[in-house]
């Protein structure tokens, strides 16, 4: 029944390794960019607020496929931005991380902003009264508490990101979804192959969700 699963020919683990790499790099990138965006959205400077709001609303409402294809067709093919990659493989991987980061950052920003709203206003006011600057208030008082309360929503974003990496197949990153396409083309076993890859993604995302659920309980701010 599973004789089509020729691991010599189909590098199943290699493909999921690329998927995991895409997810991890994009997660790091989007956490950083998302935090900056969230800071912008709550900042006292109107221009920054406008930029943050504009970014989130435009990127969040654009289909990921469009963003990923734009990185390849627009940035790479038309503008010649190869992200320092020598081969298509390198370039595509980096472009995919860029696209996924840009997209996921919008969701991280919104999750984080909801966390900021859980921190009582009095704390920020007290910090201001002590003479802390805006960035100090954010960095030392508000964000540490905000992050603790949004671990669970961020886990959602991270799981969605892991599954969204499949879109990178559209620009030829050799991750799990692309291998799945290859195997279906050769083996005519749609359901079994689909099942194997679904299982692979569950194995990636389920532990992530469980671990972060546990972390979320551990670090929650008791008020």
């Amino acid at each position: 029944m599973f004789d089509f699963l020729d691991l010599q020919r189909y590098d199943l683990f290699g493909a999921f390794w690329v998927t995991a790499q895409l997810a991890v790099f994009s997660a790091i990138g989007s956490l950083i960019l998302g935090t900056i965006l969230a800071g912008m959205r709550v900042s006292p400077v109107p221009l920054m607020r406008v930029f943050g709001t504009g970014y989130v609303n435009i990127v969040r409402n654009t289909p990921l496929t469009v963003i990923i294809l734009f990185t390849s067709l627009g940035l790479f093919q038309t503008l010649g931005i190869a992200m320092g990659g020598d081969t298509f493989t390198e370039t595509n991987f980096r472009l995919a991380v860029l696209g996924l980061t840009a997209y996921t950052a919008a969701f991280v920003c919104e999750a984080l902003r909801s966390g900021i709203n859980t921190v009582p206003v009095g704390q920020a006011e007290a910090a201001r009264a002590l003479g802390l600057s805006f960035t100090q208030v954010l960095r030392l008082v508000v964000l540490p508490q905000a992050f603790r309360s949004v671990v669970a929503p961020l886990a959602n974003v991270l799981i969605a990101l892991t599954k969204n990496t499949t879109v990178a197949a559209a620009i030829g990153v050799a991750e799990a979804a692309l291998l799945m396409k290859t195997m279906i083309e050769n083996e005519a076993q749609v359901f079994l192959i689909g099942g194997i890859f679904a299982l692979g993604f569950i194995l990636l995302t389920l532990p992530t969700g469980l671990l972060l659920g546990w972390v979320s309980k551990r670090v929650a701010v008791k008020r």
Binding site: L73, F88, A169, I171, G172, L178, L179, I184, E185, N186
Partner: peptide, 28 residues
């Protein structure tokens, strides 16, 4: 096109070292 027989033949037999860009469709 990613996953197609033609892409696989290039990678496995004809020119394994060639710089191959797979896309989701022919139009790209």
């Amino acid at each position: 096109v990613s996953g197609s027989t033609s892409a696989q033949k290039i990678q496995e037999d004809i020119a394994p070292d060639a710089n191959l860009q797979p896309y989701g469709g022919y139009s790209e």
